[in-house]
Amino acid sequence: MNAIEISNLNRVYRAQIGVFNRSIKEVVAVDDISFDVQAGELFGLLGPNGAGKTTTVKMLTTLLIPSQGSARVAGFDVVKQANEVRRRIGFIFGGERGLYWRLSGDDNLRYFASLYGVDPAVSKKRIPYLMELVGLQGRGNERVGGYSRGMKQRLHVARTLLHDPDILFLDEPTIGLDPVGAREFRNVILNLQSQKKTILLTTHYMFEADALSDRIAIINKGRVIALDTPSGLKGHVSDLSVVELETFGTPESVLEKLRSLPFVDALSVEDREQKQMLLVQTKRGAEAVPDVMAALDGQRIGRVIVREPTLEDAYVRLVGGQA
């Protein structure tokens, strides 16, 4: 049974520009996407900034009206039966916003429990249970404004579980968390997964999507460009190796030269303070290293590694090195 069904979904944002010569600028955020999520599945939605992930989640959580197409969540239409959908879902949009900072953690949960229509007797038992589940036991009386970012994110999870929904939408829930906080958060997600909740997770973090997701859709410029299991997606680059080179201030002209070499399938660049990490995807493996070094002639080069491709490399190849 499908928990989420999306059919030819489309969303266009219209913004008025100019003061005297007014005109409407249209931006297509989601462009004709279709996919289903099965009940109990953890479905990852991956894509660069502005790819349309959050817009998709907002349409599915009834907060935006689609421009075209349709979507059903828990069997209900997200536009015509929005209230039925709202009763059955929980959602988190990443970051610290969305909570009442002047209220305590417990009061936040009591407030949202009331808005979800949870019986006060039930919420009285459920709130301490959820605070414990997300590791905030003993902190419920403190104002949320004094919580760390990670604590706020975990309080979001508790909030979204108050009415015990079957379907959860987690939009970049680990964004901005430190590595320990992010790991704890992933454990909470795994716990929810073990309870057979259907989870739609959007994230930038490839290892997170790889570790948690049953299936992943990669979305770019509003379109789904690949949909498969993590291992299936990695199969897109199984014939490749990745040469990782640490460089310092390599100019764009040199990168272009490297990109144009016939044996280079894709090149992505990660800036790490003063360093750059060049990730060269090639079918030639270690044999490509001398030619890559030659193309970088005159550049200062640090560590060089040749490794097997990961989900991130598959992603880079699929989105064309734009990440």
Partner: peptide, 11 residues
């Protein structure tokens, strides 16, 4: 503060 969406998204 980002709570308006949460309120509108409630039953």
């Amino acid at each position: 503060t980002g709570t308006l969406e949460s309120l509108v998204g409630m039953p």
